[in-house]
């Protein structure tokens, strides 16, 4: 099956979606009244005049969480090819020229998932997952 064309259709669909949005925006811009004023264009601050910059300092726990996420996310994506090929790796397939690995494939991945769980336990122990 030739599948390269299929990816083009996905991209085309995405592009089409963006175009529909563009049309909606254009239509709205043509139809709606436009009467901007100073107070309308101020940022919302519960009725008070906004002071200073909005990009305030925020808690460092967001960074730690993001780093933990990044680590796990890359690992989960790494598991995906293994998962898709798992049955093939263990049992092999008719007319496919390679020796099936058998349960060895399972144990090898368990080492990986085990290390992942260890990392999770470490983050837990260190309090990186706490949200106080």
């Amino acid at each position: 099956m030739n599948t390269t064309g299929e990816y083009n259709w996905v991209a085309l669909f995405l592009f089409g979606g963006a175009c529909v949005l563009g049309l909606a925006f254009a239509l709205a811009a043509l139809l709606r009244p436009s009467n901007p004023g100073l107070f309308k264009r101020l940022t919302f601050e519960s009725g008070a005049r906004a002071l200073g910059d909005a990009l305030v300092r925020f808690n460092v726990r967001f960074y730690i969480l993001a780093i933990v996420f990044l680590m796990f996310d890359v690992d989960v994506v790494f598991i995906f090819p293994w998962a898709a090929a798992f049955r093939l790796l263990v049992f092999g397939e008719e007319n496919r020229l390679f020796t099936p690995m058998g349960p060895a494939c399972l144990w090898e991945m368990f080492v990986f998932i085990g290390i992942l769980m260890l990392g999770w336990a470490y983050a837990y122990r260190k309090g990186a997952l706490e949200w106080v």
Partner: peptide
């Protein structure tokens, strides 16, 4: 948006979605 509420909201969203 460069406004405080949206900024805090986006951080929350980000943390929730990635979790």
């Amino acid at each position: 948006s460069q406004s405080r509420y949206p900024f805090l909201g986006s951080l929350r969203t980000c943390a929730q979605v990635i979790s």
